[in-house]
Design a protein around this nucleic acid. Structure first.
Lengths: 106, 106
DNA sequence: AAATTAAGCAACCAAAAAGTTGCGTAATAG
DNA sequence: CTATTACGCAACTTTTTGGTTGCTTAATTT
C-alpha cells in the first residue's frame, strides 16, 4: 500500500480517528468495538473502518475475546512522527539562524 | 473547510507533498513553481495543487515577482503537530507507568 | 433450544483528493 | 512587435476515503 510513516500520518490526519485514538488512550481498559461506538455518532461499521486504519498504522492493537474485540491504543508509532519532525524543528523561528546551525552539524 | 491542525496533518500526510516541502526547506532560496516542477515527475498543475494545499496549511508562503511565484517553506506550523503529540508522548513505552505520571499531573 | 448480541463481510454511495489536459493571459525576451 | 515563458483557471478522470445498509456467523443469554 504505502510506507509506514505515511500510514501513520494518514491515520492521524482524520479528526474522527484522532478522537477515537484519544478515547482509547485515556480509557482505563481496552474497549470493544461496540463500546467505542457508544461514544461517537457514526455507525458501527464506520468505527470498524477507522479502527482498521489505526490498527494498520500500529496505533491500535486488538485482542479478541469470545465474540468481542478489545481495542487498545498504542502511542509508540507516534515516535516516528516525532523523528520525522526533528529535522524540521531546526527551521522553526528565525529560519536563517537555525539553518546555519543545521549546516554546521552536517 | 477543516480545522487548522487537520489541514496541517493532511498536508504532510501525502508523501509527494512531504517531498516538495523538503525540497523547499533545503533550498537555499525561494523556488518558482517551474523550478519545483523540475524536481518531480508530475505535471505543473499537479505541483501547483500540492503547493496550494501546503500554503493553506501555512507550510509554504508565496511571493509573486512579475510572472513568477516564488515559494518558501515555513516549518512553523509543525509546532502545532508537536504540541498535539506532547500529550501522547506520556504513553510511549511502558504505557502504564507513564499513565501514572499523567494522572498525577492532572 | 431460541433469542439476543458482537462483530465481520460485501456492496454500495457520495464526496474529496490526486492528477491530467486544454486554454487564456500577463510578463519577459528576442 | 512577436515569440516565448510562467502561470492561473476550468473541466474532467480516476482513486481513495468516509460513511452507510443488509446479510451472515458465531458467541452469549435466557
Amino acid at each position: 500500500m504505502q510506507d509506514n510513516i505515511t500510514k501513520i500520518f494518514k491515520a492521524i490526519a482524520d479528526p474522527k480517528r484522532r478522537e477515537i485514538f484519544h478515547a482509547l488512550i485515556i480509557a482505563s481498559s481496552a474497549l470493544s468495538i461496540t463500546q467505542i461506538c457508544g461514544q461517537f455518532s457514526i455507525s458501527r461499521q464506520g468505527v470498524t473502518k477507522h479502527i482498521k486504519t489505526l490498527e494498520e498504522a500500529g496505533l491500535v492493537t486488538i485482542s479478541s475475546q469470545g465474540r468481542e474485540r478489545f481495542c487498545m491504543a498504542d502511542a509508540q508509532p507516534l515516535k516516528q512522527v516525532s523523528e520525522w519532525m526533528k529535522f524540521y524543528e531546526k527551521f522553526w523561528d528565525g529560519a536563517l539562524d537555525n539553518l546555519g546551525a543545521y549546516l554546521d552539524e552536517s
